[in-house]
């Protein structure tokens, strides 16, 4: 492969020239020297800590003293903790309600927005705006919307109209949906753009042929648009699911004075991990929770890819 001996054939040369490498070797060296930085970065910053978390989850490390191996004690403690199961249910509530609702709204908006010619770009920008806004800033605005009267916008409006007030963030049943609505709204812009790109990518000829054959709109949607949109849908389902499983910003910022909502009713796993690690400094226990989250993310992603796989 490499022929370094070329220069050795001219021993009388006063200064040794650099060994000549073949074009392929040189390009391989170039490629790898550029790739080395991200590879190194991923190994040191991503993979090493990930694997280290598995080890930490078996220890009682608290940042201050040396980590001591305690076997599966952290896991036993976690599964015996009703607070953990509460966050577990909450996390899945965000996932199971949030993902389909997001997907449906994003598709409907994209489907109709695709046909609108009037102020198309303006409308698209309007939908996209929440996505580029800082989650924390949005969460605080919504937090004030949701307040009881006299500060809360929604409740004040209800009061003006003569309705009773609704407890949003202060209620154990309404707090989670109230936060989920804002998370769905915030993610919508991105999903709409992706769906629209997917819709545009479907060749017009299919639609023309279908119309010539006299198919109705509903049939076209079901038989042509949705099947051809599948790669986009698969991508979005995985993307949205992961986002909901990792929900944190909205919850953290909307319930700072009672983190995780009244009686933990809105607390997702990530917030629990954050509190265990950076408020209680119980790193070993936090690592065990992280391993559980990692497993859930892995299983959910693989399951979705398998269910939505291309059978063709």
């Amino acid at each position: 492969m490499v022929h370094p001996t070329e220069s050795d054939t001219i021993p009388t040369h006063p200064v040794q020239p650099a060994p000549r490498l073949s074009m392929r070797t040189r390009s391989a060296i170039w490629v790898w020297s550029f790739l080395a930085i991200p590879v190194l970065f991923y190994c040191v910053i991503r993979f090493y800590p990930t694997f280290n978390a598995f080890w930490l989850s078996l220890t009682d490390w608290d940042l201050m003293s040396d980590a001591e191996f305690i076997g599966f004690e952290n896991y036993r403690r976690m599964f015996a903790d009703p607070g953990f199961w509460q966050t577990f249910r909450n996390t899945f509530a965000y996932l199971i309600y949030g993902t389909p609702i997001s997907l449906l709204i994003a598709f409907v908006v994209a489907y109709y927005l695709d046909r609108v010619r009037f102020a198309h770009n303006f409308l698209r920008a309007l939908y996209f705006m929440p996505y580029i806004t800082t989650a924390a800033a949005m969460a605080w605005v919504w937090r004030w919307f949701y307040q009881p009267p006299p500060t809360g916008l929604i409740n004040s409006a209800l009061g003006e109209l003569g309705f009773g007030q609704i407890e949003f963030l202060g209620s154990t049943t309404n707090a989670l949906p109230a936060i989920m609505v804002t998370a769905i709204w915030a993610g919508l812009g991105f999903q709409i753009i992706i769906f629209m790109a997917g819709l545009r990518a479907i060749p017009d000829t299919y639609y023309e042929a279908a119309r010539i054959d006299g198919l109705g709109e509903w049939t076209i949607l079901r038989k042509i648009t949705l099947p051809l949109l599948k790669p986009t849908t698969v991508f979005l389902v995985v993307f949205i699911s992961i986002a909901f499983l990792r929900i944190f910003d909205q919850v953290y910022n909307m319930t700072t004075n009672d983190p995780g909502g009244p009686l933990g009713s809105t607390k997702p796993l990530v917030l629990m991990i954050y509190q265990t690690a950076f408020s209680s400094y119980d790193m070993g226990y936090a690592a065990a929770q992280t391993v559980v989250l990692f497993t859930i993310l892995l299983v959910v992603s693989l399951l979705q890819l398998w269910i939505l796989r291309d059978r063709a």
Binding site: S171, T172, D258, P259, L263, G264, Q275, S279, S280
Partner: peptide, 20 residues
């Protein structure tokens, strides 16, 4: 020993009476 966690028990204690 963990002010945030101990505060949380008091917050929850009041909430159980108020909300449940």
């Amino acid at each position: 020993v963990d002010e945030a966690a101990q505060r949380q028990t008091a917050i929850d204690m009041a909430n159980r009476v108020f909300l449940q």
